[in-house]
Design a protein around this nucleic acid. Structure first.
Lengths: 138, 138
DNA sequence: CATAAATCCTATAAAAAAGATAGACTAAAT
DNA sequence: ATTTAGTCTATCTTTTTTATAGGATTTATG
């Protein structure tokens, strides 16, 4: 399961995407609209900013905004950033690979193979679906 | 990611499946072969037994054994049992559903829809692949 | 330039989950 | 009776997750 952090990030990003035309959006506004603790959300948005997903402006009239159009922000990127590996096992993770300690040889491990396929099927969706694809259907 | 508990369970089950013809297998043997803490493994095997996946025999000549042939034990079942939901969000979980607190209406939530598809693509594999499919390729 | 508005940043606390261990109990074999 | 091996429940430790606190910094504007 995705952590609350990642879930909150998605909801915040959706809100930002749905209000792209309104300039910078306040943390407090997002927190209220999406029922998220404001201080927790602050940390999350900061992290997204430091990774280049969001931009921000301080002072009056400030807030957060998307650095790229929603259709260019893949869901996989957000998950990896805040939650880490998408794969179910370390030994099949593309971005956070770790050797398996309980099997002798990954090359002949059937578990490795199946979990690799699960990863691929998830990535096929998560790498191609973007923020634009998860906006509220109107 | 799957917990260590679930990962250990898979390795133990693989070992049991690869030795079905040898009668009950000792916890200590599995622990040694797969480099798993014996006490931790004990708890895991007990849980698998109480769920009907494994059977056991006490005393001399005792140990654990599979209750069904490997090809009838789906991977999804093991994961759900020890790790909980396979879905990435509570609001798209078939077995551990919880309402989403941050969105107004799941019916129009695009995140819900996409994550539902990710769940389906994972289940398509995990419900159909069994213990038999993850045995060491010889 | 002063003030208010907002994000930035780091630290820390609290709670929950994961990982691991301990030890007494029960059942079976011989 | 003794040994062997699983059963059960409790507890401990560590790590991760979730959340909060509060001062620092930047910007707009009168």
């Amino acid at each position: 399961m995705l952590s609350k952090k990642t879930q909150y990030a998605f909801h915040a990003l959706i809100y930002l995407a749905e209000n792209v035309d309104k300039g910078p959006i306040l943390i407090s506004e997002i927190a209220q609209e999406k029922s998220i603790s404001i201080k927790f959300l602050e940390n999350i948005l900061l992290e997204l900013k430091n990774s280049g997903i969001l931009g921000s402006k301080k002072g009056k009239g400030g807030g957060y905004y998307l650095m790229k159009p929603p259709k260019e922000i893949a869901l996989a990127k957000i998950i990896r950033l805040l939650d880490g590996p998408i794969a179910l096992l370390p030994c099949v993770s593309l971005n956070y690979y770790e050797r398996c300690e309980n099997c002798r040889d990954e090359a002949v491990c059937g578990l490795n193979e199946v979990m690799g396929r699960v990863r691929d099927s998830a990535l096929k969706i998560l790498e191609n679906k973007t923020l634009k694809d998860i906006l509220t259907k109107s």
